[in-house]
């Protein structure tokens, strides 16, 4: 095998991207847990830990740029680095969304609305990211399409959850006797819940992006990109 140094760098890049995904997924789990338990220490852990992921992202981004500039990769090597370059961006965004969950936890003034299965949606999108990273690690094309299919289910779940939030909370908790302060508080909670649902739905979108880039990496196919 020629270009041993380059091949070793490719192996290291793959390992580092997978390592970054493990940290990001752990942050998502912690953020979801904080939301459920209203645990401020967990929320702060996620928020304060974001800079670590940002630094890792910048480091891996630079690694990719160096490989492009210094090794001038082609063919499968090029697609692997290009895909990794895009995937770390998706992972960094997922980490930002985990941070949002921490923020929502700190801002919350009431328990999570029980009729909306935030935990179920959260676990579903976390599993999607896990599956996408496994597909990346194992170069599993079939899994990429399967993840794309799961996103439709998550989108439906999120749409239903948003409807429930709007309909139930506004219709059942606001009446003629509600004070302006009560209405304002409720609307803030509705916004927070809708943002939470939207952010979780976006995590699913990032999982699909990772699957799409993995499909490109393995098969040079842009079928799942957009």
């Amino acid at each position: 095998m020629a270009r041993k140094g380059f091949q070793r760098q490719l192996v290291e890049l793959r390992e580092n991207v997978l390592y970054m995904s493990e940290i990001v997924l752990e942050r998502m789990r912690t953020g979801l847990n904080a939301l459920e338990t209203k645990d401020e220490s967990l929320a702060n852990e996620v928020i304060e830990g974001d800079h670590e992921i940002n630094e890792l992202y910048l480091e891996l981004e630079q690694n990719c740029i160096d490989l492009f500039a210094l090794q001038q990769p082609v063919a499968g090597d090029l697609r692997f680095i290009a895909a990794s370059f895009k995937i770390i961006t998706d992972l960094e965004r997922v980490a930002d969304l985990a941070t949002n969950l921490g923020d929502y936890t700190l801002e919350a003034t009431r328990d999570m609305y029980p009729n909306v299965d935030i935990q179920g949606i959260g676990n579903a999108v976390i599993e999607m990211v896990e599956s996408a990273m496994t597909a990346y690690a194992e170069e599993d094309v079939d899994a990429c399409f399967e993840i794309d299919g799961r996103d439709d289910e998550v989108d439906d779940l999120c749409e239903r959850a948003s409807s429930i939030v709007v309909r139930d909370l506004i219709e059942t908790e606001i009446d003629d006797g509600s004070s302006d302060e009560e209405i304002e508080t409720l609307m803030t909670e509705v916004s927070r819940l809708l943002l939470t649902i939207r952010d979780l739905e976006r995590v699913g979108d990032h999982a699909v992006n990772i699957a799409a880039r993995t499909l490109y990496m393995v098969d040079n196919s842009d079928e799942l990109i957009y």
Partner: peptide, 19 residues
């Protein structure tokens, strides 16, 4: 050719896996 060659031999050559 440089992004997705059909031939594995070409892939191996252009990626420097053999000379």
């Amino acid at each position: 050719i440089f992004e997705n060659p059909d031939s594995e031999r070409v892939e191996n050559y252009i990626t420097g896996k053999f000379g």
